[in-house]
């Protein structure tokens, strides 16, 4: 299986390739990609140079242009597609049907992947995207179990890519408006979920409050791991009960499920974290490359050592193994 690794900067891209990434995904420094964070992403010259170097080392580069264009501002997204082609990208990752149609018409030779932001969670819709827009690969949303992924693969020729590590979005991506409710900004339109511009931390006598858009989303005591205040992992009180309504503040770690995902017909394993540091990228990619190599060679999987890098410093297999479903 191919590992698809994140890079928020040219330095992270180089670290990912050196650590053994088969493929790296990244985005331009604007609202065309769903990790539009301050200080992050690639200028055009950085993208061109990074792709050329990655190719010299045998790695592929995918460019995520996976937000939904604002009406009347399509030119920014169209330019991003054209520049991705000009920079030599191996594929672009898109979510918006209009942008997919544009890319298929204007740049038919540029491979098209369907972003997780399109929330394509069944074979019918995946086959529709393939038939209409020539999509070759789909990034599956993180709401499917392994048997559901196997069932999808049995009914489509489109390659499937699944997340195996990193921040865990538990919603139907591209459709979630929780961040918009609290901040007016969303990953779908602005490329940021729970944007840092609306996040505030207050620490008093060891107690840490994490606020989003003025709302306290988490409150943790001294010594407890700090969370990032996303609403889907917030702590709420309803009636006489207080707890995490949707999901605990944990990260996805499906390392142990890699053999099952391989059997389910998955083509590529995706690591989340374009917003994370070079150090994170290097450690996680090295770990997963070793795991994939062991799997391909029929050797025991190496033990993971990645818990400390995770939000909440704890991992979950998410929907892949959710028994309540």
């Amino acid at each position: 299986m191919e590992i698809v690794c994140p890079a928020g900067t040219p330095a992270a891209l180089r670290a990912a390739v050196k650590a053994g990434a088969h493929t790296v995904y990244c985005g331009f420094a604007d609202e065309t990609n769903a990790r539009n964070f301050p200080g992050l992403n690639f200028e055009r010259d950085e993208m061109r140079e990074s792709i050329a170097r990655a190719h010299e080392h045998g790695a592929k580069v995918l460019i995520a242009i996976n937000t939904y264009p604002r009406a009347g501002a399509e030119a920014l997204w169209h330019r991003a597609v054209a520049d991705a082609a000009g920079c030599g990208a191996d594929a672009i990752i898109l979510a918006d049907p209009g942008l997919l149609a544009f890319a298929a018409r204007e740049f038919p030779d540029l491979r098209r992947h369907l972003s997780v932001q399109a929330a394509a969670a069944n074979a019918d819709i995946i086959n529709f995207y393939a038939a209409e827009f020539g999509v070759k690969r789909v990034v599956l949303p993180r709401v499917l179990s392994v048997p559901e992924i196997a069932a999808i693969n049995a009914e489509t020729d489109v390659e499937t890519e699944v997340f195996v590590f990193g921040g865990l979005c538990v919603m139907a991506e591209g459709r979630c408006s929780l961040s918009s409710y609290a901040t007016g900004k969303s990953p779908n339109m602005n490329g940021v979920c729970s944007p840092a511009s609306h996040v505030e931390y207050r620490e008093e006598a060891g107690r840490l409050d994490a606020r989003l858009g003025g709302y306290t989303i988490h409150r943790v005591g001294a010594g407890e791991p700090a969370p990032y205040p996303t609403l889907c992992k917030g702590c709420f009180t309803a009636g006489d009960k207080t707890g995490h309504l949707f999901e605990d503040p944990v990260s996805l770690n499906a390392e142990a499920l890699m053999p099952a995902l391989q059997k389910a017909g998955v083509t590529a394993l995706k690591i989340e974290g374009r917003q994370r540091s070079v150090s994170y990228v290097s450690q996680v990619v090295r770990n997963f490359r070793a795991a994939v190599d062991a799997l391909e060679a029929g050797l025991p999987m190496p033990e993971g050592m990645l818990a400390r890098l995770s939000e909440g410093q704890a991992g979950t297999t998410g929907a892949y193994k959710k028994t309540w479903r």
Partner: peptide
């Protein structure tokens, strides 16, 4: 680059 900034933040 010895430590990841987010991890240092998560661990407080």
């Amino acid at each position: 680059g010895a430590y990841d900034g987010d991890a240092l933040f998560f661990s407080r």
